[in-house]
Simulated scan of single mutants.
Amino acid sequence: MNTCKAALRILKARKLYVIIYLVLIGTMMFSISWQIMRGSTAAGATTYEPESARIAVIDRDDDAEHVAQSLRSYLALDGEMVTIDDDSISLQQAVASNYVDLIAIVPQGFAERYLQYARITPRLRNRP
């Protein structure tokens, strides 16, 4: 309680400082609010619209079971499909130059192994 009384006595003795402080804080608050309001009305778009991703699909499985084509059609819904060559220099250059955002590689034998594991069904046991 003594600390509060001492703080109030100091504020009472320095009324001019308190008034200057409150005026400066009020002015700063008003100017920041004004800038925010002015900036929000000057913006052209009302919502955020991200750029579509540039995607390349490298097919090393010769489109077995149409896996690569299905992957391309699925990724084309949200991105822009890009064609690049399947050699290490082209892949490195596409990534380094920011030509593509995503490179999806379908490896050799993927469709066959996928179908092999998809046919395996787990056995369910009855527990007592």
Rank of each mutant, 00 (worst) to 15 (best):
K5M: 10
K5I: 11
A7Y: 12
L8S: 12
R9K: 11
K12S: 12
R14K: 14
R14A: 11
K15M: 03
L16E: 13
Y17A: 15
I19K: 11
I19D: 08
I20E: 09
Y21C: 11
L22G: 04
L22C: 12
L24I: 11
I25T: 04
M28L: 14
S31I: 04
S31K: 06
S33V: 06
W34C: 07
W34F: 09
M37G: 05
R38M: 10
T41A: 06
A42T: 13
A42V: 12
A43T: 15
A43G: 11
G44H: 09
Y48S: 12
Y48R: 11
Y48M: 11
R54I: 03
V57D: 03
I58S: 01
I58L: 08
D62F: 10
D63W: 03
D63C: 04
H66A: 10
V67R: 04
A68Y: 02
S70T: 09
L71S: 03
L71Q: 01
R72N: 02
S73I: 07
S73A: 11
Y74Q: 09
L75N: 01
L75T: 00
L75E: 00
A76H: 11
D78M: 02
E80A: 11
V82Y: 03
I84A: 04
I84Q: 01
I84C: 03
D85V: 07
D85I: 07
D86N: 14
S88G: 00
S90L: 04
Q93V: 07
A94M: 03
V95T: 05
V95N: 02
V95I: 13
A96C: 07
S97N: 14
S97H: 13
S97T: 15
Y99V: 04
Y99F: 10
L102G: 00
A104K: 00
I105G: 02
V106K: 00
V106W: 01
Q108R: 15
F110K: 05
E112P: 00
Q116R: 12
Q116I: 08
R119D: 08
I120V: 13
P122W: 08
P122Y: 08
R123T: 06
L124M: 14
R127M: 14
P128E: 06
